[in-house]
Amino acid sequence: MTEEIVRTDRLVLTRPAPADLDDVFALYSDPAVWEHFPSRRHTDPTTTRLLLHAIEESWRLVGLGSWVARDTGGTLVGTGGCDLRLGLAWNLGYRLARASWGQGFAQEVARAALAAAQRVRSDIPVTAYLLEHNTRSRSATERAGLDLVWRGPDAGNPDPAAVRLLYADRPLSPVVVRELTAT
């Protein structure tokens, strides 16, 4: 298990708690942060509660999950970290409040998440699964050191033209790529 509280240069990353629900719902219900996948925007706090429960399960089962990221003054910057995906790969992810974009916070979260994944299970690859037209996320993923390993249709996306990209910190077997991109 990794630390549940991690400090970066400008952030305090904590394991989500029930008290975070309102702030995380405000983030996940903001249309601006879902501009690349509007159908995923939370419209009810119950959806956010379920998300926080899934993150808690990741922490409980594998000793790592996403964090709530706040600046040193306590203001929510976003969420992010590594969650185990299908038991095959860590999925590096982050969702930042619009006011926090372009300030390098994604890189701080990514560095902390990559280090935590290495401490918990270095044998599991770290991946990032993102939409091709999300250029900010692509740039942050590439700056974090992950390489593009797959490009193809986004299974299950209501937009039939959506293209997904799969990045990884190492080569992935065809079986792992197939499993990660089929859902």
Rank of each mutant, 00 (worst) to 15 (best):
W67I: 03
L61G: 03
L172Y: 02
R178S: 11
W67F: 12
S66K: 08
L166C: 08
L130K: 02
R85D: 10
L11H: 02
V77S: 07
S66M: 14
S100W: 00
H133R: 13
S139H: 14
S100G: 04
D30W: 05
T8E: 07
Y129I: 09
Y94E: 09
V62T: 13
L148G: 08
V177M: 03
A162I: 07
R98M: 02
I5W: 01
R143T: 09
V149R: 03
V120T: 15
R164C: 08
G80T: 10
S58L: 11
T8V: 07
P158Y: 09
G63L: 08
R151E: 00
T183Q: 12
G65M: 02
T183W: 01
G87I: 08
H42L: 04
F25G: 11
C82T: 09
A99W: 00
R95S: 08
A112F: 02
R70D: 03
Q107H: 06
L11K: 05
S173K: 04
S139V: 05
L166F: 01
A112R: 00
A89S: 14
V126S: 00
V68E: 15
A54L: 09
W34P: 08
L96I: 10
V33G: 06
L11D: 09
T43A: 13
A144P: 08
A144E: 06
E142C: 01
R41M: 11
P158L: 06
W67E: 09
T135A: 13
L27T: 07
V175Y: 06
T141K: 00
F37E: 13
